[in-house]
């Protein structure tokens, strides 16, 4: 097969090539991050990848046009050159589709599963989540490749990494630590104080925001401090959060009210204020004495 044919082939199968390359590069990159000496089994993601590769029909190249792979023995002498889709940049990989298509609302069970998954990564609602994958222990720059607030995001194992939900802060590991140790591969030693449980029961993640009435926009049931970018969690393609059913609307707090009490804003001030026992009724019934509305007429019709 001529190199030209290879290029043509890739040209006509741009999409599957991109995905295949994404898979390859992601595997390479995750391998790099995991470090050479690690013996822990982080197979969840790779297993997903393999499944995708073998089951997804669109990933299967049409028969008869498969370029022959170069044997290991010939690798040293083979002449490689980048095809048109080759990229050395993570940011050029297949990225999340963030077009604002209508999304079906989550079912109750999906919501529950998402909330439980969220809770497993946080000590309490408002705590910085721990990182559910191995991390580069020394530098934060690798975090930004996938979690930056802007720019394309590679889809990894069908999941879109969460965008930074807060203002840009460059020392990620100050607040976000790995959930599974430092991963130097100690597996057969019982070390540390591993067995001591905690009785800390943090604020649980609110299931749903209150609504003033059915169909009213729910109020935001959590603090939005450090979560100013709602789309980080609620955008399409995100897991472990309620995805918005109306991603085309960008000004979230226009309709969804925030709660000062939830965030403890101005609590010094709040302490000074006397609690109001009843909500203020903006449309109070007129006092009975001056109520001119007569009883319904004989036909039972109200007076206009």
């Amino acid at each position: 097969m001529l190199p030209k044919d290879v290029e043509n082939y890739f040209d006509t199968h741009r999409r599957s090539t991109a995905i295949a390359l994404a898979i390859l590069l992601v595997t390479v990159i995750s391998g790099f991050f995991m470090g050479m000496g690690q013996t822990r089994n982080f197979s969840d993601q790779t297993r997903d990848l393999r499944d995708r590769q073998s089951t997804s029909a669109e990933n299967q190249p049409p028969s008869g046009k498969i370029p022959t792979a170069i044997g290991y023995g010939d690798l040293a002498t083979a002449t490689f050159r980048p095809n048109t889709n080759w990229s050395s940049s993570l940011n050029d990989l297949a990225t999340a589709d963030e077009s604002y298509l209508p999304v079906a609302a989550m079912t109750k069970n999906e919501r529950r599963a998402a909330i439980l998954a969220r809770e497993s990564l946080r000590a309490f609602d408002g705590a910085p989540p721990v990182v559910p994958h191995p991390i580069d222990q020394i530098s934060s720059s690798s975090c930004m490749n996938c979690h930056s607030a802007t720019g394309p995001q590679p889809v990894i194992a069908g999941r879109t990494p969460a965008r930074m939900s807060h203002t840009f802060l460059s020392n990620c590991t100050q607040c976000h630590v790995a959930s599974s140790g430092h991963g130097e591969g100690v597996t057969d030693w019982k070390l540390g104080l591993g067995s001591i449980e905690t009785r800390f029961a943090g604020l649980s993640i609110a299931a749903a925001g209150d609504r003033a009435y059915p169909e009213a926009p729910p109020v935001i049931p959590h603090t939005i401090r450090m979560r100013e970018n709602c789309y980080s969690c609620h955008g399409s393609g995100r897991v472990n959060a309620l995805t918005t059913s109306h991603p085309e609307r960008q000004n979230c707090t226009q309709c969804h009210a925030i709660s000062a009490a939830k965030e403890g804003r101005d609590f010094d001030l709040l302490r000074l204020r006397k609690p109001v026992r009843f909500p203020i009724d903006l449309n109070p019934p007129p006092p009975p004495a001056s109520d001119p509305t007569p009883e319904p007429d004989t036909k039972g019709n109200p007076k206009p």
Binding site: F278, P279, P285, P286, P288, D291, T293, P294, E295, P296, G300, P302
Partner: peptide, 21 residues
């Protein structure tokens, strides 16, 4: 049977000692 009756009843319920809101 009528909005005014509604309002009266509303006020009556609210006035009950065992009702907060």
């Amino acid at each position: 049977p009528s909005p005014s009756r509604s309002r009266d009843l509303h006020g009556w319920i609210e006035s009950l000692a065992g009702v907060d809101y």
